[in-house]
Design a binder for these strands. Structure first.
Lengths: 351, 351
DNA sequence: TTTAGCACTCATATCTATAGTGTGCTAACG
DNA sequence: CGTTAGCACACTATAGATATGAGTGCTAAA
């Protein structure tokens, strides 16, 4: 087991008591006293002894006392130590697993899958589920179509590898014949088919700058049109799906209306949350931000548990749940883990 | 002025006091006592006299007392009488009007306009804004396109009069040639162009039943495909847009977490709310549901102020705001009214 | 019809006493 | 030296007593 700076002063027995204390606190929500802990730990030690241990734990900054004659509650560092070294992950029940599989079935586009995963997360954890829409670096361009509409308007349709169809109506100064449009779409599909949207966008930009002179006007226009669609495609509906936010209103730990309002506002604003989620893209497996660790004020009383999901080995996005710091980590961590894996699978098969 | 059953016992002076009382209560949120009312009313009457009047108003069911030694607060009937006969509508400020016009500008599709109107409503009222997506009975079918994708998948694109483009990828058992698809889309566009979606759907259904035998298979398929798109098009993203729901968390009147959770859940569920909004389609001008009047339990402590908006003389949808029963009706009613009119105008010009 | 006066009700705030919980410290024990 | 029992102390939570203040309803008089 890894050694951290704290466990110099905190021996293995103390760690065990910390584990028992935190699990008890997670269940009851009440500060845990020495008598309770003595009874609960199963070790035949008197409360007085426990008190000495607790004193050590407090000195190490892992637990704290709300006031003189309450028991102890975990600090952020305490939770951190707990999730890093002490959790006993509780695998999902058969029924939960089944529900999950059912909800995240293949056969929907990326956005719909994200939405379902989000609902599944919030249902199973009774907290708020959060799923990033698969990001465009991992979405492959498959096909583009230009459909002439009435007047000088053109409908541009972009089909991507995650099964999603994006479209945009574009006003173009010049009128195109149908064959010109066909020519343009063939050009684009041929040259960029199979590339991811990010590099396609980069390629288009380069093409526009360097070779403008050598291309006929239709091509130039086509490239400009495609670029326009790509530019707009990220704000299509916002970049993550949120489910079950009202679940958070049930927790006594989050009952402060002002705090909760800030939290909800932050969900609506999205930007900061996305920033936070971006941080989790690189890490392997489940990541946890406890309280202020997220460094984002509205989350101060919350914990964010995340995991990245992928399409064919490349990280495509992040999902997770938000809940009170006092959450059942033993259960939540596996749920997030499994959801990410199932979502990865669902995305892979439809390549 | 109209006579209702209550004002038999409530003379004009009493009505004036009711107005003053309610306006005072709306400002302060505190029960209003006889002394305050005597001072506020401007009429030189003693508190004792006011007490007699208040007693009458209470007997008429227009105000009530939370307990013996508090002042009086309006009942639902009191608010009802107030909004029906006593409001002094306060027109929008120039700046507000300008903000409104700016936000609901022409040049976006129906859904985007609805979203903007919703934000405008919540910004101006500091409550929750609610805008139904223009309903399909008022949306005209303009054009349909079938685009063959890889495999046996076909992309169906539906362009409607409100500028929106809906699409759906359809798995078809049979493969079609491009010319077959062109034929099909020409048939549909020719026969149903300019009709509203509802009657188009009905027409398709009828066609499928009666004339199936006489049509070649491609047409039958085309009709089926179109029907499929229409069937799915209503759940495209939900049927109303909600903004500023977190504003509701600021109101002391709605601070009960359980109630508020129910309210928020009801927003997420949508169905019942839509049902409620449907009721307002037929009525002219602004409609108001105070407290239990809405007959929908999560709204018991709320008031819903709605107005229908139209496209070219036909009701296209409903918008409104949700807030605590104790809201500034004088101001909110004109805001809702104006928003509906501006949205109607924005929708008309793009016909 | 209006008003003044008075008794009454009830919510709210303040203080007090008390019980309960849990701690830290010390001294004793094995 | 780790463990334990005992005790004083700190603090919260609760309930009861009490006072305060706002506002009412009623009555009798102007």
């Amino acid at each position: 087991m890894a050694n951290t700076s704290v466990d110099v002063a905190v021996n293995e027995r103390a760690q065990y008591f910390l584990k028992v204390l935190i699990e008890h606190y997670i269940r009851d929500g009440q500060p845990v006293g020495s008598r309770t802990l003595a009874r609960d730990s199963g070790m035949n030690l008197s409360p007085a002894t426990i008190r000495n241990v607790m004193s050590d734990l407090e000195e190490a900054g892992l637990i704290t006392s709300p006031h003189t004659s309450a028991g102890r509650v975990p600090t952020v560092s305490g939770y951190r130590f707990f999730v890093d070294f002490l959790v006993s992950l509780r695998p999902l029940e058969k029924s939960e697993m089944q529900q999950m599989r059912q909800q995240i079935a293949v056969g929907a586009d990326g956005k719909a899958l994200a939405a379902r995963a989000s609902v599944a997360l919030s249902d199973l954890t009774h907290m708020a589920g959060l799923v990033m829409i698969p990001r465009r670096e991992q979405i492959l361009f498959r096909q583009i179509e230009f459909v002439p509409l009435s007047g000088s308007r053109i409908l541009v349709i972009l089909v991507t590898s995650d099964g999603e169809v994006q479209n945009r109506v574009i006003e173009s100064a010049k009128r195109f014949t149908e064959s010109q449009l066909t020519q343009a779409q063939n050009f684009l599909t041929l040259n960029y088919g199979g590339q991811d949207l990010e590099s396609m966008r980069a390629g288009l930009l380069k093409e526009m700058q360097s070779t403008r002179k050598q291309m006929d006007e239709v091509m130039t226009q086509a490239i400009e049109l495609a670029g326009l669609v790509l530019d707009n495609s990220d704000d299509s509906d916002g970049d993550f799906v949120l489910s079950g936010q009202t679940n958070l209103m049930g927790f006594h730990d989050l009952s402060d209306m002002t705090m909760l309002k800030h939290l909800f506002d932050s969900f609506a604003e999205k930007r900061q949350i996305l920033h936070l989620l971006d941080h989790c893209m690189d890490a392997e497996g489940v990541q946890i931000f406890i309280g202020e660790e997220s460094d984002y004020e509205p989350f101060d009383n919350c914990t964010l548990v995340t995991a990245a999901y992928e399409t064919d080995g490349n990280v495509a996005g992040v999902l997770g749940v938000v809940g009170p710091t006092r959450m059942d980590y033993n259960k939540v961590i596996p749920i997030v883990d499994v959801t990410a894996k199932l979502l990865s699978m669902a995305l892979k098969t439809q390549k």
